[in-house]
Design a protein around this nucleic acid. Structure first.
Lengths: 155, 155
DNA sequence: ACTTTCGGTTGTATAGTACAACGGTTCTTT
DNA sequence: AAAGAACCGTTGTACTATACAACCGAAAGT
């Protein structure tokens, strides 16, 4: 067990828990404010698609821990908006490779820019060193969260 | 302007942006896994109610940047579950002060415990120093995010 | 060939949220 | 004091995000 004799750790974990939760609560509303054009979470998916220069729906589901159906609908939405394009894979007829369209790339760039601007403004007066450490912590935390806990039921 | 001649800052901000977003995406699902009993965001509201030892719905809305109607329904849900109680304010007949019930306090404690456990497990092998710094960064970030940006339209 | 497994879609259900309209209350202003 | 404004909360409606389960077609394993 993690020692009960470490109140400092406990307190830190508690704060982290609380603050990450607070952030999560606000995130959606904030995102909607920052880029109302790109409806939603699709922004993230589109970003991933673009970054990977083409990927399958299953990859998205796996990477973001989303259900297939959710991804399917999100992608359908993006397609209807004309931001992604599906191309059947030549070798495997089951998969369809997703690519951003010209419009998709454009809108994504715009959304990323305003998003970045919002973050930059909030982090404006942070020393570079703290920024770097904060980034590293988040990466580390999320990496741990991504892999299901060892003993978890993983349902 | 934040200097364009600081690629390190940019990179850090980018990572922070991405990772916080990733966290936000997963948070809800994770919360549902950790405490399915307490339907979700309600957990946060209930926690706030308890912490404040009684508060009004409007306070919740203001604090969490939620619409009145959303809070109204959340509270209604919590009440139906028997976790909060409304008491009319003696002085002002418009407001109703929210208090956790016995059951509410109990379930909240349980949820907090399992939530904490999950976080603790994920943060298990972090040095205490890093935990403390991570917590501080999150506090700082959220404090900045809570106050609407100076130039923001705030629509 | 038969059966799994895999990638994706669709049906259905639920949580969370917003906006707009409304009903009472209380406070302001004339 | 009467009229109007501001405030607190609820309800109607709509939409996004999400999951689970059932399904279809294609591919891989036996």
């Amino acid at each position: 067990m993690t020692g009960a004799a470490e109140p400092l750790r406990e307190a830190s974990v508690d704060v982290i828990q609380r603050e990450l939760t607070a952030f999560a609560r606000r995130a959606r509303a904030a995102a909607a404010r920052v880029h109302p054009e790109l409806p939603l979470v699709s922004y993230t998916l589109l970003a991933h698609i673009e970054e990977q220069r083409g990927c399958r729906a299953t990859d998205l589901a796996a990477h973001y821990l989303l259900d297939k159906s959710t991804v399917s609908r999100q992608v359908a939405g993006l397609e209807k908006l004309g931001f992604v394009e599906r191309r059947p894979a030549p070798d495997d007829h089951r998969v369809q490779v997703l690519h951003p369209t010209e419009a998709g790339t454009r809108v994504l760039a715009a959304a990323q820019a305003s998003r970045m601007a919002a973050f930059r403004e909030r982090l404006e007066d942070w020393p570079a060193e703290d920024l770097a450490r904060f980034a590293a912590y988040l990466l580390r935390y999320n990496a741990a969260a991504a892999s299901p806990l060892p003993g978890a039921p993983a349902n």
